[in-house]
Amino acid sequence: MTFRFFGTRLASLVALLLVLSVVLFVLQEISATDAAAATLGPTASPEAIAAERARLGLDGPPVGRYLDYLGGLFTGDLGTSFRTKRPVTEDIGSYLPATLELVLFAFLLALLLALLFALSSTLRWRGAGALRGLLFVSSTAPTFLLGIFFLIVFYQQLDWLPANGRASGGAATDGPTGLLVVDGLLAGDPAASVDALRHLLLPALALAVGPALAIGRVFRSSLRTTLDAEYVRTARAKGLGERAIVVRHVARNSVNAALSMTGLQIGFMFAGVLVVESVFSWPGLGSYLGASIPVSDFPAVAGVTFVLGAVYIVANTAADVLQGVADPRVAV
């Protein structure tokens, strides 16, 4: 765990965010819509459009415009949405908590399922084969099909769980964290938290299955490799129980590959959440994006991509650093 290790990780974090901003700026440049015309609407006169272009600084050289864009990103300015005519940052701010709550919950669910998957096949629990088969088949399904399937089974047929939105009735979404489950607990209203959890369950499950299998498979295969190691034989020989061996000796030495897979899967979850939200009418960034794409509202699309991409890059750096913590050999 050296200073150098953290230094390189931090530098590459900054470099990646810069590259992401360049990519989005270039895409903005080649996108077919003219920002000035789109802002003013179809009835604007050519003169008005020209004036708006000058006001937005669209006539300057590309490098200058990129620096403007970058400066905007630093101050939290992602441009103005063509569709809502509001700053993209404001729009995203109002949709982000819903998406974060869903992704966080799905992420925990994915880790839990992955752990079950990996340990069940190593410790040979009953029902392990069934769980694995189920996960394998569902991993070939597109996320939206899983969502649809859960809707039909748990909402339409069994009527156990709600199908739409984050809460029943007019739940307050202006709590301190924006995460309804946490806000309910903070406000001393556990019923609201339970309601929010019931709404979370189906979309989170649809989102979690794919990543759970990917992480679980990697973790299982490195568990198996580690189980063949000589120190495991020694642990067995000195009479340690199988569970103690797996938990104390094998799991820690196998967690590395699983961690980097987890980092990768966060990216897939951010893409998946966009799809899942539109299946469950979840009022998050996916719904925002879904409304922006058909009207070619590129600032909105770029804003969502930048915010989710930045979270992904930060999460991956965190996974990298955690790898160094779990296995000091990585951080040399």
């Binding site: 590459s12 990646l16 590259v19 992401l20 990519v23 989005l24 895409l27 903005q28 080649i30 996108s31 990216g267 897939f268 951010f270 893409a271 966009l274 994006l289 794409i293 070619s296 590129f298 699309v301 770029a302 991509t305 989710l308 991409g309 992904y312 890059i313 991956n316």
Partner: peptide, 14 residues
């Protein structure tokens, strides 16, 4: 290191 699917969404939208 970039989130591939998200970038693909942005490219397709642009």
């Amino acid at each position: 290191a970039l989130p591939g699917t998200l970038v693909a969404v942005a490219v397709a939208a642009a």
